[in-house]
Write a protein that binds this DNA or RNA. Structure first.
Lengths: 235, 235
DNA sequence: CGCACTTTGTGCATAGCTTCACAAAGGTAC
DNA sequence: GTACCTTTGTGAAGCTATGCACAAAGTGCG
């Protein structure tokens, strides 16, 4: 096969870049709504909250879609990023676990937006099964494999209690799923080839607490000493 | 001031390390519940899903808390990590926006767990104000500054619609808050010294979609061509 | 006491990411 | 057509993070 693309595109966009593309896409959509036709890397970088050199390097991994002296065509760049991210096709998403979080996710507007569609909802609780959300009846978890198969689900969101998460993961993987978004606070063990992304509220809070504490320490100049273990453990 | 600590502790733990400490903490809590007294870096690394050398290096940034030939004392390490993360004190957290997501967050068990306490709930909708959740009445957003001050809130979770997020951020920052966890899909602009962490569902889904597409491309060997813009834009 | 075994803590090489700085490329005005 | 202006795309340097591999430090047994 001939290597058509410029060397930048051969294969493999850095993970750090992929993680930022959604950010750029959102900023671009905002610009498009306001009717902006072209944008410079500098302005887009400000809108996305990143350094402009980084933005240009990120975009250069997709190809050479800018015009020197002018900037980037907003609509065209939206299309190119969407295509790269695989948003020009529709992804059928299943949500497992229709508790508070599952409901929030199902109702989340940006969810249904470009490229994603809630195609199935599952719960183990018979009090919830049958309930309708966003025009979709909740199926019993027993139906997991058959419904996933029937509706062409390719991404599964796990919003169950921590104790159920691994079991759900095992089942959906056995059913052929290779992309999982996990909200349960556990480390999922999965075979190679399966992508798991984790969203973890308490982790984020803990990281914030760390920095908040650092700021407080810096002001008072009195970090806690290392020797106070025994005392503190009494609490 | 005398530099007491070993050189590893002088100041500044790498961000990448800080981001993993909550993970280790969770794994350790699991071990503690099962009654394990000591654990090797190898076993803990498996439980946390990371490389053991990385785990040891991460822990070495906190100090030298292991015993060669034995491993780490589980309880002691839990305490040290908790202390480093600032979880030995209680953080009062306010949730702004009591929609589906806000409710899910307020009810989230792991939230209230070690170190964090929901101290205030705010909403702009008078239909929601006054409602009780987790033993806490929802206050009107007008009361934001006074309630934050009165209850000693130091971390704010923004779970509002995207359009309201920046405004809420501006107000809580003016009220002295320097740590924000943002669930709204917007880039918040904040002054130096304010930490913002973002949790973004659609970003995560888009990253998954990217990898899912890559897998599909690899199988069929037919990535979409770059020239099809005009056609695709008709859709 | 000494030897064999385990496991930590870290020096070092490597890989990946970020940022600077600038040449190359395109647009515009006259 | 030329001179000037703007902005991209990228080489190169610096920084951060990762993972190997091993010396140092501790345990336990005979």
């Amino acid at each position: 096969m001939i290597r058509r693309m410029s060397q930048a595109r051969e294969r493999g966009i850095p993970d750090a870049t992929v993680a930022r593309l959604p950010l750029y896409l959102r900023a671009l959509n905002g610009l498009a709504e306001r009717g902006t036709a072209t944008v410079s890397s500098e302005d887009l970088a400000v809108a996305a909250g990143v350094n402009s050199a980084k933005l240009r390097k990120d975009l250069s991994h997709l190809g050479s879609y800018g015009t020197r002296g002018v900037g980037y065509d907003v609509e065209y760049l939206i299309y190119q990023i969407s295509r790269e991210l695989g948003l020009t096709q529709d992804w059928a998403v299943a949500i497992v676990g229709v508790g508070n979080l599952g409901r929030a996710l199902a109702n989340y507007g940006g969810f249904v937006s470009r490229g994603f569609r809630v195609a199935a909802l599952f719960d183990a609780d018979n009090g919830v099964v049958g309930e309708r959300l966003v025009g979709m009846a909740v199926d019993h978890i027993d139906q997991l494999e058959s419904v996933i198969d029937k509706r062409g689900v390719s991404i599964v969101v796990i919003a169950t209690p921590a104790t159920a998460a691994q079991q759900v993961a095992d089942r959906v993987i056995a059913a052929g799923i290779t992309s999982i978004l996990n909200f349960a606070p556990v480390v999922l063990t999965v075979p190679d080839g399966v992508d798991v992304r984790k969203v973890d509220l308490s982790t984020e809070l803990q990281i914030l607490a760390f920095h908040e504490q650092r700021k407080a320490d810096r002001e008072t100049g009195s970090p806690m000493m290392a020797g106070d273990w025994a005392e503190a453990m009494d609490a």
